[in-house]
Design a protein around this nucleic acid. Sequence first.
DNA 1: GAGTGTGAACACGTTCACAGCT
DNA 2: AGCTGTGAACGTGTTCACACTC
Lengths: 250, 250
Amino acid sequence: MSTPTGPRAVHAADPDPAAREHPREVPPATVARLPVYLRVLRGLGERGVTTVSSEELAVASGVGSAKLRKDLSCLGSYGTRGVGYEVDYLVHQIGRELGLSQGWHVAIVGVGSLGRALANHSGFAARGTEVVALFDVDPDVVGQRVGGLVVRSAAALEADLDELRVRIGVLAVPAAPAQELCDRMVAAGVTSVLSFAPTELHVPAGVDLRTVDLSTELLVLAYHEQRKASSAAAARTAAPRCTDLLEGAR
Amino acid sequence: MSTPTGPRAVHAADPDPAAREHPREVPPATVARLPVYLRVLRGLGERGVTTVSSEELAVASGVGSAKLRKDLSCLGSYGTRGVGYEVDYLVHQIGRELGLSQGWHVAIVGVGSLGRALANHSGFAARGTEVVALFDVDPDVVGQRVGGLVVRSAAALEADLDELRVRIGVLAVPAAPAQELCDRMVAAGVTSVLSFAPTELHVPAGVDLRTVDLSTELLVLAYHEQRKASSAAAARTAAPRCTDLLEGAR
DNA sequence: GAGTGTGAACACGTTCACAGCT
DNA sequence: AGCTGTGAACGTGTTCACACTC
């Protein structure tokens, strides 16, 4: 996942003696959990809770308390020993770290059933991001009103993305046209891409890419099912007691 | 991602003396990549390719060749030194490892716009899994035909899931009812859950849970955007040359 | 007493480099 | 010669345990 070590090259012949460290370097695993903490904290705040301990917040977030404290300590010392964390303040700090309050402009390319679902999905446009445009190639879809926006023609992709200052693009198209549309988004100034296309995409250095592959998720579960099935079968032949393989949460 | 460290207990007071180790233990990180290799290999097969080297397959899959070889070596020695891997055979072996050809029965709970998109999504029902039922609480939705299936009432959830032998459940509902519906699926015999609900779910030991949180994905990208923006700003004040932060792939 | 912040130990995952087979 | 399979080195992420603070 990218190489967030500041503006420094990473190529082979570079001993990288003293890469000037940026003030705060948050590890990727932690970044991936911050949105979860944020959501849980907002929920607590709405229910009038003003203070939480790491243990409480950890349980509600489905992680261990030590991990949670270490994650939060990346952002600074925002807790009070013997007491816990102030909910509102923590929400503010996490939001700051994630770069919310910037209102990043997001565009969705591909208004099939998935694109439509994303456009309507409340909370997909989380606080801090705003879907400002939808694109599609199908002339029948172009011009339709979806989620309060009029679908634009993909022909105008570059011009529109540039004009709207879109930095984050969501790809909800089939595998075949995905790479080409991805390239065009990047050419138009998009530097972060979230793809739902079931194919491997290649992006130039400096562009962040995240891929959510729905069928992959299912196949991973199928693997676990198979393991459980064969374990159960093995246990059945061996011992009368079965179904007791435990697991952690998450 | 659960705790797939074999059939080993994780709870406090459980020494679990001799958890019988199963023949092959595939690390979770590898399991998550197998579906990608599988897709790439099928694509190659359809284009008439019969043999690939680890390097070629690695590039096409967006990983390093050493990683790929190590992943494949978990399944056995299916390559030929000096030559590469036979595409068809590898497809077969990966499919075997993932437990395809079992035709796992999948149910989707929640037929809003996202549930609809999933039901229609070709390839969401990947080979090896089959969506056999849709459920919703809304009486207006119940009875509708979606993706070739008639939407059932959530009232009959337990009975229907049990009767249809559903082991894998997909939750495409809002946060509020998610936990309750998850519990009911588990009570009806579901042992793997894929949730799209923006909330933390708790499942009993022995049940696998994967959560895909769309807004989290966006916020992670927002974080990277912010870093890029501030790096660029810093570089602009420091040196005349900018936009040269390199990055690895993925 | 209660609970945070953190070094130190540990587990997991990735990369390297090369031995060994075809 | 070419490419797989894998031990060994490395880096990242998690867990433990406790010093320190309120």
